[in-house]
Amino acid sequence: MTEVLERLGYQVDFPAAQTCCGQPAFNSGYTGDARRVARHFLDVFNTADYVVVPSGSCTSMITHHYEDIFQGDAKMLESAHRMAPRVWEFSRFLLEVAKAEDVGARFDGIVTYHDSCHALRELRIKQGPRRLLAKVQGLTLNEMEAAEECCGFGGTFSIKFPEVSGGMARTKIDSIVKTKAGTVVSIDSSCLMQLQGVIDRSGLPIRTMHLAEILASK
């Protein structure tokens, strides 16, 4: 991601104090713990012009759910409101801020794109990543039937209900296999980790890559 952003002329900073947006705690019902982590996030990124996030899920947590967790705390709510418009999911940043559709990448092979749930349904990101992929030289995008179906990760869900989560991933992978793609691309690493885990367990010759990795390829 850094490479692509720098290629486009942006100065990238990586605050060393950064950790997490707090979503794991929030999604598990630990709002207090999530609030603590969120406050830390807001402190660390306080001065950035743009916060570019390589995850739809984390972006959505910050731009949509900080609102919920700081309900009743006017000061933090204001701080969250000030942060939200500066937080950009990576692919959307490229298209809407950097106005770059072609980032000069080359990737030889067939890929298929997995719509991660929070990017798709909370951030309404659907065509953007596909437009970016279409401009990558040598790349063929084969759509899978179940592109919008959940990979089954869901944070602690994957550990609390391993059989269900694994089953969901296998359904998704059946659909991926049909596309003959060698690579599954997404904008959320957690989905990719889940899918890669089940792919490896099944011994399939498919690898998962983040959109940023594809766009950084030459």
Binding site: F26, N27, S28, G29, Y30, T31, H65, D68, C117, H118, R121, E122, E148, E149, C150, G152, F153, G154, G155, T156, F157, S158, K160, F161, V164, S165, M168
Partner: peptide, 29 residues
């Protein structure tokens, strides 16, 4: 309330727009 990956497919098709994932999160808490 934890038996969900919070994928949001339910809310998207709900004809009366019930915010199911949001309510699941509330119930988890």
């Amino acid at each position: 309330p934890f038996a969900s990956s919070l994928c949001g497919a339910c809310a998207e098709v709900c004809p009366v727009k019930i915010e199911i994932p949001k309510l699941l999160l509330k119930l988890r808490a």
